[in-house]
Design a protein around this nucleic acid. Structure first.
Length: 603
RNA sequence: GGGCGUGUAGCCUAGCCUGGAUAGGGCACCGGGUUCCUAACCCGGGGGCCGGGGGUUCGAAUCCCCCCACGCCCGCCA
């Protein structure tokens, strides 16, 4: 975590920063004089992780005690004794082999709330940086509607992009549209022929009510209908395989029929409409064919031909021996062109990534676990070309279905995003109507859609990308407990208090000492955790940590809500509590923005 | 067969990178809480050999090795 803060008093955006800096540097000094030198950086890391309930943060001194040759308990006492209580530090205690640090409560309250109010919507964000980042995510084939498995990519990618922006990076999100492969060719192949000449089983399987798309059906759903049946036929019927193959060659040579781009665009529009329901949008769309058309793929092939480990096979295919780049032995020889000299997916992807690096300092690729080897291949080829930069990969595991295996349209084992959101919206509407008879129907609809999106987005985001997600309807549709709607509800509660107090806008004057209950103290600490969480997620790509954090913040808010009356309080107690509610609402709202879940003023 | 990843209560999950204080939560279950700011909430309770075994260490859910289970990849497909 880099910081322009030079310690207490300097500019900072993390309320803990002055205290942590003070503790770390003083502790480093004391450890050095005790004969167990530690760097400030190492101590800051330890302070971050060693925190437990008994203090704000602490550090075990076993190792240092060994280095110094004294018992840990003695060293802890020596380190704690006379520790200067400045920079917001109230107390330092030696608890067995641990040194614990307790923040001065009023100071932490003041520091935190003032920072929140000063930065408002930017609370939690870091100052701007110059390194630009390209985040490529989703990039699903334009063959039909999104199923939930594919959407995990978008949820992770979009959340990471939002977090990197908050961490100060200029971010551009890109969707790489594959318009060159067999998948998209199959769509064009089937839709380029009149309906009465479709193969019987494709026509029957697709169950089209007519030749024209009804207004009620989205283009991705409509044009995607025959996909799995064409795919099946290509596997079983050599004639179909041959004509689709013919079309693929046309696409690769740049002679795509006009219908091809039109179909892809229309289907993509439908797919993007679904993603928009989850607040996922893209800055740019990059068409794979563009790298063939502008000659950059040819230039990549030329460069690879002259690369140190390149070799031309008997039939003319160009390969690169990437054994030296850590690829598994079986896959060490990467095929870069076919025997006829045409490019392959990985070759075009190289051209794409060189284009990324020409514009951006960093490139982040969000990929499913089935692309791990591709990721390593890509890196190996970039190395072979002498490019020093590498994409940073965020890899996530599949969403599986209860009967086993990953979601798959082709196997008919898929839950579609639109269906899930429709069902979730219906349930959310029922929930809203049950408790809010006063709201106009239009607002109920809006709330229901946002609650549904919040539930789905949180449900998928909450799990570490490394782990598989077992899709279960009832869990995906849960609105209570650790869920998106719980966060939205907390935000709505905070909004409601401020609304009823007539204090929806700053200023929020407060006397820090007035916020003295344990629930209020815990809430302040939760609020103070946002900047550190943003920095952590930006550094690691562990986007699910945002979900964990936001939940713990909402939880702290609800506990305080339960324990501490605000509107019924009086005088400076009421003012201070209103300020705390306003700060909690701000921190929670900013967290929701990062997660991509709508803030709801009421629900 | 090889490579990569995952395994934490009935179910779901955080913590693992960077070893440290009684392994945090949620769902479900049991018991409480609303003349009061939205009960989509809060409080209490039971439920864990952290997949198994070995190792390193003062100390292992966390690091290393072996094994087991599950997933994915190992195309001149994308």
């Amino acid at each position: 975590m880099s910081s322009p803060s030079s310690g207490a008093g300097g500019p900072f955006w993390d309320p803990w920063e002055p205290l942590r800096q003070h503790v770390a540097s003083e502790l480093a000094r004391r450890l050095a004089s005790a004969g167990a030198p530690e760097t400030v950086e190492a101590l800051l890391r330890q302070l971050e992780v060693a925190s437990v309930g008994v203090a704000d943060f602490g550090v075990p001194v076993h190792r240092a005690a060994q280095a110094a040759g004294v018992p840990a308990e003695r060293l802890a006492e020596r380190l704690a004794d006379g520790f200067p209580l400045t920079g917001g530090l109230a107390r330092v205690t030696a608890d067995g082999p641990y040194v614990n640090f307790h923040a001065d409560a009023p100071t932490l309250v003041r520091t935190t709330l003032e920072l929140v109010f000063a930065r408002a919507g930017a609370y939690g964000h870091a100052p701007a940086r110059t390194e630009s980042v390209c985040v490529e995510h989703t990039s699903a084939n334009t063959t039909g509607p999104f199923h939930v498995g594919r959407v995990r990519n978008g949820i992770i990618g979009d959340t990471y992009a939002r977090t990197l922006r908050a961490a100060g990076f200029p971010v551009v999100t890109q969707y790489y549209v594959d318009d060159m492969g067999r998948q998209s060719a199959m769509i064009t192949w089937i839709w380029s022929r009149p309906l009465d000449r479709w193969p019987a089983e494709v026509r029957e399987g697709s169950a089209l009510p007519g030749a024209e798309r009804p207004a009620s059906e989205k283009p991705d759903a409509w044009y995607g209908r025959p996909y799995r049946f064409v795919s099946e036929r290509v596997k079983n019927d050599p004639g179909t395989a041959a004509s689709v193959g013919e079309l693929v060659r046309e696409l690769e040579s740049g002679r795509a029929p006009p219908a091809h781009r039109r179909l892809a665009t229309e289907i993509l529009d439908g797919m993007l409409a679904s993603l928009a329901r989850l607040s996922i949008r893209f800055d740019e769309f990059v068409w794979e064919s563009s790298f063939v058309a502008d000659g950059s793929v040819d230039r990549v092939i030329d460069r690879l031909r002259r690369a140190p480990h390149a070799q031309v096979e008997e039939n003319g295919a160009l390969t690169v021996d990437a054994g030296g780049y850590g690829l598994p032995q079986e896959k060490a020889r990467i095929v870069v062109t076919r025997g006829d000299g045409t490019s392959l997916y990985v070759t075009r992807d190289i051209a794409y990534h060189l284009a990324k690096f020409a514009r951006f300092a960093r490139a982040v690729d969000v990929l499913g676990q089935d692309h791990r080897l591709h990721a390593r291949t890509l890196s190996a080829l970039l190395a072979e070309l002498g490019e020093e930069r590498r994409p940073e990969f965020v890899i996530y595991q599949d969403i599986t279905v209860p009967e086993g295996g990953r979601m798959s349209t082709r196997q008919g084992k898929a839950v579609y995003l639109d269906d899930l959101l429709d069902e979730a919206t219906e349930r959310a509407r029922a929930e809203v109507l049950q408790r809010r008879e006063d709201l106009p129907a239009e607002e109920v609809d809006g709330i229901a859609a946002q609650v549904a999106a919040g539930a789905v987005r949180f449900h998928i985001l909450r799990i570490a990308p490394d782990k598989p997600v077992k899709f279960q309807w009832e869990e995906a549709l849960a609105f209570d407990g650790r869920s998106g709607p719980f966060l939205q509800y907390s935000y709505a509660r905070a909004s409601s208090i401020l609304r009823k107090a007539g204090r929806e806008r700053p200023p929020y004057p407060f006397r820090p000492g007035a916020l003295a209950t344990p629930e209020e103290a815990a809430l302040v600490r939760a609020i103070a955790g946002l900047p550190g969480t943003v920095a952590y997620v930006a550094r690691t790509g562990h986007v699910h940590t945002l979900a964990t954090y936001a939940f713990s913040l909402a939880e702290a808010f609800n506990r305080a809500y339960q324990a501490v009356p605000v509107l019924r309080a009086e005088g400076d107690l009421r003012d201070a509590r209103l300020a705390l509610v306003a700060a909690a609402r701000q921190a929670l709202g900013n967290s929701l923005d990062l997660i991509g879940i709508a803030r709801l003023e009421r629900m």
